[in-house]
Every structure is written in C-alpha cells, then in structure tokens.
Amino acid sequence: MSLTPLPKIMLEPLVRNALLEDLGRAGDITTDAIVPAELQDSMHLRARQPGVVAGLDLAALAFRLIDPSVKLKVERAEGQQIAAGDLIASVTGPARGLLTAERTALNFLCHLSGIASVTRTVVDAVRDHEAQIVCTRKTTPGLRAVEKYAVRAGGGANHRFGLDDAVLIKDNHIAMAGGIRPAIERARAHCGHMVKIEVEVDTLDQLEEALATGVDAVLLDNMSNETLKRAVGLVDGRAITEASGRVTPETAPEIAATGVDLISIGWLTHSAPILDIGLDHV
C-alpha cells in the first residue's frame, strides 16, 4: 500500500497547540523537578494490543518541538499491521524532553492508530467484494485532515473533506428546494463543471428522479440489502452508488455483496476506540 505522508506544515499547528495546552503556564513542573537537565535516555513505543499504526509523524513532531535533539527511529511503518508487544519506534534524547512530550505524542498516536485499526477491520470484512470503505465529515473539530489520513492508513478512502469540494444534496436540502429535481438543477447552475453532484435518496422513486435529472453519485441511505441490490440495478453504471447507515464489520459484507461502489461509515472517525500503545523506559 502506498501512503503519502501529510506535509509537516499541516501537522505542526495541531501538535504545537496540543503541547501548549498541556504545558499550561509553567511547563512540566513534575519532570523539571525530578529529572536532571543533562540526563539522556531511551524509551520504546510498544503496542499493547494488535492493530494498525498511524500518527508516527505527529508523535515524532511532539518530541522534536519540545527538544529538537530527540531522535525517533521507526520500526513499524505507517499503515502496517502490528501485534501486541511489537516495538513500533524508539525515541532517544534528553530525558526531560521525552517525558514532557510523552502524553501528547501518545494521544495522537493512539487515537489515529485506533481509527486505522477499525478501518482495516471493515476493509478486511469486504475484501471479497469490490466495494470501497470510506469515511465521512463526522470528525473531531480541528483533526479532520489527520483522521482522514488515518482512514487511508487503514486501507480505506475518503469522502469529501469539507462543504466546498463537492455537492451533497441531503434530505433537508431537498425539502427546502421543493424536490430533488430543483435541488439538482440549482446546484448544477451554481457550481462549475468540475464539481461533482451527489444526492441522498431513501427510496427507489427518489433514486429514479435523481437519475432522470442527472447526477454523479447517489447516496443510498438506510436501505435494506434487498433494496440496495435493486437500486444498483436501476443505476446500471450511470452514477457511483454509495451505501450508508447501520454499517458494522458484521453487516458490511452483505452490504458490499449488493454491488454498491462505496460504503460510508461515520463511526470510523467519530467513535473509534484508541489503540493502546505505551511509551516504556528501556
């Protein structure tokens, strides 16, 4: 799998703000009181449960923003499956820097690895089908770019990043526009030819109206698997089909078997548990 790292200029403000929040007004008074300034040390980042690694760049940045002399050696690459007890990376440098940055580094690493891990679980569940697993905009405020990156690290893909990169006409838009056709026509007249248009539909009648008007993608919301299969047949390749609603690793294979192109899941980012990773003294 090819996984392009995010530019450091995107990551630094996130990590810097997290460190400033932790350091408060007086810095790490515990470490400064106990650990000699000249002490050098090494610590290991180890997995305490199986999963997928994501967020090492943010962890490394946390250490280096506290002390640029800290060195992080990666042993398990981003997107790599790991087992409990595996050494993910080692960090070496001034002991004060290691301890002061520890929690911020782990917060990012555990959170993003958790997202990557649950994504991989669903991706593996549908591996016998063509459907691709995608995330949504249900992300932690301020962390959307890195959480969507973590989904990619887990083998998934991204839906739109924000309100400005694609049109997604949902039920409230349709209600306020007075129907599917006027909603699509207004969107097409307002946006340029480079912007794709997707419409959320709940019924096959709505789907037929959307297809007759012309769209790039249809979001088939909370449909039964039988209805999803009929919807895919109606679309017949004229638009991208996306299934959404009540998706779990257990239900995903049957949803994928209907022939949909995408399965979108909000909980990949908004409810993924952390992956337990520790920073242990060597």
Rank of each mutant, 00 (worst) to 15 (best):
E12P: 02
T100D: 04
R127T: 14
A59W: 01
E242H: 03
L211Q: 15
T119N: 02
I197Y: 03
I274N: 11
A95E: 06
I184F: 07
M1V: 15
A33M: 11
A183G: 04
R188V: 06
S2F: 15
E242F: 03
T213L: 08
D86R: 15
G179D: 01
V118G: 02
A125G: 00
A89S: 10
T269Q: 14
K196T: 06
E209Q: 08
L234T: 15
G237P: 04
H173T: 05
D171F: 10
E242Y: 04
I174K: 01
E78F: 02
D164P: 05
G51K: 11
D22F: 03
L219K: 13
T100F: 06
G192Q: 05
I9P: 06
L99D: 00
A217K: 00
G93W: 00
R144L: 14
G155N: 01
S113G: 00
I180L: 11
P94W: 10
E21A: 12
V74T: 07
Q132N: 10
L65S: 05
A187P: 07
K8Q: 15
V123L: 05
E102N: 12
I180S: 06
L220M: 13
R96F: 04
H129I: 00
I133E: 01
M223R: 14
E130A: 15
L228M: 13
T258Q: 02
N107Y: 06
